[in-house]
Design a protein around this nucleic acid. Structure first.
Lengths: 237, 237
DNA sequence: CTGGCAATGTGCGCTGGCGAACAGAGGTCG
DNA sequence: CGACCTCTGTTCGCCAGCGCACATTGCCAG
């Protein structure tokens, strides 16, 4: 077994000043995140904020028809539950664990209290929220104008940035529901990428072999978001 | 000529406590907003926050190919320039005046100062930002799954909520670029709506005749966003 | 090692939206 | 009042992605 994750594996927690971190440490609670677990449903009251370390959470919207679409993903660079401090407490979206792993969680009232302290944590969270907004922004535009193959490449690259090993546990069915397209569409696009030797997959596993290949096929959206997220989360002035 | 707009015509400014408002009043500056005016471009430094009264501003993203997509709109219920207080200062999107009118603007540093006061204004702005997030969310999902006609209905209804007269000054070309679709697609969809007697248009003018008709055709997205925005901006606890 | 089931591969026909090209029809401005 | 330009209507071929149906293939449990 790999060593238990430390809070520092989450970038937001990692860059907190020691003093700040000390205050929160005793309230942070390590929890396992199982694939498919639902952290919250539309309109449901969030009880905790989650800081993923090794897990990945997908923020998605499910339409009345049952069709779904991922709007943004949260990995160890962020936090699930921004609506807690934005003031709404709930959102019309859901959050589902997309890659199993761990997260640290913080009870809702504590989280809000720490935020209202108006210290470095607040600034960090607000900047992160803006990064999240950029993701959604770009997803909306990408949904409108780019092909399934391009979006698949984007999704793979984003996920890869959060899973250094490049070994993803993920069925085509699941990818399809994330992207909000048909499973067959993924089969086809993934088939092409496999033929080119960029990826290899077998029954629920995807291995990225040649990252550069994906980068040559992806739309601009990947780079735009990555650059913006780096800008926002690197150097707090 | 209609009377000059008062700051109270902007909902955010209207609900501010008198004390708060007094502080800001002397810095608020009434400006005309001309159709097509660009408030900021991707990556550009915002100099002001804008509180629309009678104008409508469209937040959009322009792709490398030149194709564009509106991600959210801001009318008298909101403010343009959330990135100023979120910490990023800029965003990769642009803001364009979609309906001419007026707005009150606030110099960047003043705006940030007032926000950092952590009073009612801050809470209000954060809640509004979450409402904005909901809009983007829903736009992303809507772009993925709904037809041009549905999206046109949504767009008309949203705009109608901000233009009580129901008389829109807007060419099909412009609507098309907002929705990120072809102009012909709008011609066709609008033609249907006109045949049904829901709207009437002539060279750059759209008149909504039967709001209920549009509501019968629109996708769920309109109601979801409206409900959520009402929830967030009505009763600050 | 052998069902059985979930995951993947494939092949239809269909349709919504795209791209391009052009014809009419208001407005506007000389 | 007429020229001109912009906006709108319409057509045609094309293709990505959908929905459906069914064949195949790993993988795991028994």
């Amino acid at each position: 077994m790999p060593p238990l994750p430390s809070p520092q594996q989450n970038h937001l927690l990692a860059v907190l000043p020691a003093a700040e971190m000390k205050l929160m440490a005793e309230h942070l609670q390590l929890v396992p995140m199982a694939l498919g677990e639902v952290l919250y449903e539309p309109g449901g009251q969030l009880q905790h904020a989650y800081f993923p370390t090794t897990s990945i959470v997908s923020l998605q919207y499910v339409m009345e028809s049952g069709a779904s679409a991922e709007i943004a993903g949260v990995g160890n660079e962020g936090v699930v539950g921004v609506s807690l401090f934005m003031g709404g407490n709930t959102t019309p979206s859901s959050a589902v664990v997309q890659t199993a792993g761990h997260a640290y969680r913080l009870e809702r009232s504590i989280f809000k209290l720490e935020f209202d302290r108006a210290g470095p944590l607040q600034h960090l969270l607000l900047r992160y929220t803006q990064a999240l907004i950029t993701q959604m922004f770009q997803t909306a535009a990408c949904n409108r104008h780019h092909s399934v193959e391009q979006q698949l490449c984007r999704w793979l690259l984003v996920t890869l940035d959060r899973v250094p090993s490049g070994q993803l546990v993920m069925t085509q069915e699941l990818v399809a529901s994330m992207l909000g397209v048909r499973r067959e569409g993924i089969t086809e696009a993934a088939g092409k990428l496999q033929q080119e030797g960029f990826i290899r997959y077998r029954r629920g596993h995807i291995a990225v072999l040649e990252r550069a290949g994906l980068e040559s096929r992806v739309c601009e959206c990947y780079a735009v978001v990555k650059k913006e997220v780096n800008r926002l989360l690197s150097d707090p002035p």
